[in-house]
Design a binder for these strands. Structure first.
Length: 594
DNA sequence: GCCGTTTTCGGCCCGACTGTTTTCAGTCG
C-alpha cells in the first residue's frame, strides 16, 4: 500500500459498510464514506498532518480525525474492531455482488445464516433464496450472475493497485545488497487493462538476500502468505489476494529473462520460432547457438533486450505491442509506430471539481494540472440531467465566470470551460443549443439506460455524435472493470459517425474503466477516429490517471497524431469547432450548412 | 458524523429501475 491515505480510506469505508450492515444510522455511515473518499483523494500524505491539518480535509470532523489519529498511534481502530466482531467479513464481501446491497445481505445472514459468497452460491443454486420475503426467482438468478461477475473480477487486479504493489516491491528489492537490477515484467509491463498476477524480476549473483527480503516485506508479513520459495523463484500472495512471483537471474542473463517474463506467450513463441529457423535457441537464459551441445553451448546474446532482439534481426519492440498482433512483421519491415507517451499529452479534457462529484476545488485541480505542465485543461463538471449532481444553469455560469477570472493565474495554461453532458435515451443532451454555445468543449457520455436495445443504443450514440456541440464521446461502453459489462451497440457504426462528424472518442483513463479498450481503439483508429486520453479525475490524485490510458493507446498502436490532446492549442481549437468544419464539408458536398 | 451568509439543530444527492409487491423496498449512479 503506497500511501497511508489509501489504507485509512479503506478502513473508513469498511467501517461505513459495517455500520450499514448492522443497521446503523445511514447518514452516519455516509459521513464515513464521504470522509474516506476525501482522504483517498487528498493531496497531502496523512502521515505528515497534525490534528488541525486533518480537520481541514472536508468531511473530516472530530470523530474521524480521532479515528485516523488512533490508527496512526496504535495501528487499529477500536470501534472498527468491535464491529468486525459482530459481522463476519464474508457478509461484507457479499455486498460486492452486483445487485446485492447491505439490506439483502443482512437478511440472508440473519434468516439463512449465510456468511460468505461461497455459501451464498450454494444456497442460490439450491433455490433456497426465493422463499425469503423480498426475494424471488429473478433475484436468485441475478445473484448467481453477480457471483460469476465477482469471481471473474477477483481473479484480476486493476492497474492502479497493481502498480502500487509493484512499485513498492521494486523499490524495496532494488535497495538489497547485491541487487544489480530490478523491474516488473509480465502483463503489467505490457499494460494489459488488468493483471492476474505480478512478475518481478531481479538480477544478482546470489539470490538468497533478495528472496529473504521479499518474504519479509510488510505486504507478505501483514496478512499475506508465502506460496513457494526456492533459490530462483518465490511466490507470495498479498492480503488482498494478489499473487506476486519474484525471479532472480544472473546479471548477464537480465535481457533474455526480462524478454521472457514480459511475454506475451504468443510473442515469445514467435521469437523462439525465428531463433530456431536461424539455427539458434532462445530461452530465459539467453540466445544460444543450437548446434553446439548443451555443455559448451555458445551464448550469442542475453545482457539486454536490445541485444537479443538485434541478434534476431529485429529492433527493440515496446512491451505494449508484444502480443503477436503484427508487431514482428512491422518490426521486420521497419514500420513500428512511434507510440504516444505520457509526455506527449498537452492537456486533460475531462475532469470534475467539487461543484459536482469531484472532491477538489476548481483551483486545486487547476494547480495540479499546471504542475503537470499542461498547455490547456478543460473543466467538465456534470450537467443537470444527472439529477443527483444538482447542477443548475446558474452554478455552471458562475463556474465559467470564475474560470475566466483565473485566466493567466496558471502561467500560460489555457483554461477551457466544458461540461460532461448526459446522452439521454433518445440521444438528446441536457441543454439546448443556445446554452451549449457558451462552452469551449463538451464531453457527452451515457450514464443511464444501460440495458437499451442494440438498435436504440446505436441510434442514441450516433445522434450524440451528430450534435454539433458534442466534441468527445466519454467512456463509450460504460463498462466498469469487474463490475459491469459494456452496453450493446453497433460500435463500428458509431466509429463511422465519430469520424464523419469530427467527434473524438475518449480513452477514459480511470483504471476502473479503461473505456474504450485497446481492441476498440484499434478498430476506431482504422475507421479514422481521433482520440482524447483523459483522466476523468474526481480528485487531484486521479489527475495521474492518463498513464493508464496511454498504456491502452500504446497497445492499440496509437501515435501522437491520433490523439487530440497531444496537439498544439491552435490545432485543437480548429478540431473543437465542429460547425466550421462541417460547414466546409457540406459546401463541398453542395448541401446546406447548418 | 458533518456542517452552516437560510441552520449550532436539523438536515444530509434525487430519481429511475427492478423485482417484489398490490403500494413498496432495495440498489444504483
Amino acid at each position: 500500500m503506497a500511501r497511508l491515505n489509501d489504507e485509512v480510506a479503506a478502513l473508513l469505508d469498511e467501517y461505513a459498510d459495517l455500520l450499514t450492515l448492522t443497521g446503523g444510522d445511514a447518514f452516519r455511515a455516509r459521513a464515513y464514506t464521504k470522509a474516506a473518499r476525501a482522504i483517498a483523494g487528498h493531496g497531502a500524505d496523512l502521515a505528515g498532518l497534525d490534528g488541525k491539518g486533518l480537520r481541514e480535509i472536508p468531511g473530516v470532523g472530530k470523530s474521524v480525525a480521532e479515528k485516523v489519529d488512533e490508527f496512526r498511534r496504535t495501528g487499529a481502530i477500536q470501534a472498527l474492531t468491535a464491529l468486525r466482531a459482530q459481522i463476519p467479513p464474508g457478509v461484507r464481501e457479499m455486498t460486492a455482488v452486483p445487485g446485492l446491497g447491505p439490506r439483502k445481505a443482512l437478511t440472508l445472514h440473519r434468516e439463512l445464516g449465510i456468511s460468505t459468497p461461497a455459501e451464498l452460491r450454494k444456497a442460490a443454486e439450491a433455490g433456497r433464496l426465493h422463499d425469503l420475503p423480498g426475494f424471488g426467482g429473478r433475484t436468485e438468478q441475478n445473484i448467481l450472475h453477480g457471483l460469476d461477475l465477482l469471481q471473474q473480477s477477483s481473479e484480476r487486479t486493476t492497474l492502479d493497485v497493481a502498480f502500487d504493489v509493484a512499485d513498492e516491491i521494486v523499490a524495496a528489492l532494488a535497495k538489497v545488497r547485491g541487487c544489480r537490477d530490478c523491474a516488473y515484467a509480465g502483463s503489467l509491463r505490457r499494460f494489459r487493462e488488468t493483471v492476474g498476477d505480478l512478475d518481478i524480476l531481479a538480477a544478482a549473483e546470489e539470490s538468497g538476500p533478495l528472496m529473504d527480503a521479499f518474504v519479509a516485506l510488510p505486504l507478505v508479513t501483514d496478512g499475506g502468505e508465502v506460496i513457494v520459495s526456492g533459490p530462483t523463484k518465490t511466490s507470495i500472495r498479498t492480503a488482498r489476494g494478489l499473487q506476486v512471483d519474484l525471479r532472480v537471474v544472473p546479471p548477464d542473463a537480465w535481457g533474455a529473462a526480462l524478454l521472457y517474463f514480459t511475454g506475451s506467450k504468443a510473442h515469445n513463441i514467435r521469437l523462439r520460432t525465428m531463433a530456431v529457423k536461424a539455427g539458434l535457441k532462445l530461452s530465459e537464459y539467453g540466445l544460444f547457438d543450437a548446434s553446439t551441445d548443451a555443455a559448451t553451448e555458445e551464448r550469442i546474446a542475453s545482457a539486454t533486450e536490445d541485444e537479443v532482439y538485434a541478434a534476431l534481426g529485429l529492433p527493440w519492440i515496446p512491451p505494449p505491442l508484444r502480443e503477436d498482433r503484427g508487431e514482428i512483421e512491422a518490426a521486420l519491415e521497419d514500420r513500428l509506430p512511434t507510440l504516444v507517451t505520457v509526455d506527449d499529452l498537452r492537456g486533460d479534457l475531462h475532469l470534475h471539481t467539487d461543484l459536482t462529484d469531484g472532491i477538489a476545488t476548481l483551483e486545486e485541480m487547476l494547480a495540479t494540472c499546471h504542475a503537470r505542465h499542461y498547455s490547456y485543461v478543460a473543466v467538465t463538471d456534470h450537467a443537470p440531467d444527472l439529477v443527483m449532481q444538482r447542477m443548475t444553469d446558474e452554478k455552471m455560469l458562475a463556474q465559467r465566470e470564475r474560470l475566466r477570472e483565473l485566466a493567466g493565474r496558471y502561467g500560460r495554461m489555457r483554461l477551457l470551460h466544458g461540461t460532461e453532458l448526459n446522452i439521454g435515451p433518445d440521444g438528446g443532451v441536457d441543454w439546448p443549443a443556445e446554452f451549449l454555445d457558451g462552452f469551449d468543449l463538451c464531453v457527452a457520455s451515457i450514464h443511464s439506460h444501460f440495458g437499451a436495445s442494440r438498435d436504440a443504443q446505436t441510434r442514441r450514440l450516433i445522434r450524440a455524435c451528430e450534435n454539433p456541440h458534442v466534441n468527445i464521446i466519454g467512456h463509450l461502453t460504460t463498462r466498469r472493470l469487474g463490475r459491469r459489462g459494456g452496453i450493446d451497440a453497433d460500435l463500428d457504426a458509431v466509429f463511422a459517425a465519430c469520424a464523419r462528424t469530427g467527434t473524438a472518442l475518449e480513452i477514459n483513463a480511470s483504471p476502473q474503466r479503461l473505456d474504450v479498450n485497446d481492441e476498440l481503439i484499434r478498430r476506431a483508429h482504422q475507421a479514422g477516429v481521433h482520440f482524447s486520453i483523459d483522466s476523468d479525475a474526481h480528485s487531484t490524485v486521479q489527475l495521474d490517471n492518463p498513464r493508464y490510458g496511454v498504456g491502452q493507446a500504446q497497445r492499440a498502436w496509437l501515435t501522437p497524431d491520433a490523439v487530440i490532446n497531444t496537439w498544439p492549442w491552435q490545432r485543437l481549437k480548429r478540431f473543437l469547432d465542429k460547425d466550421a468544419k462541417n460547414a466546409k464539408g457540406s459546401e463541398k458536398a453542395g448541401s446546406k450548412p447548418k
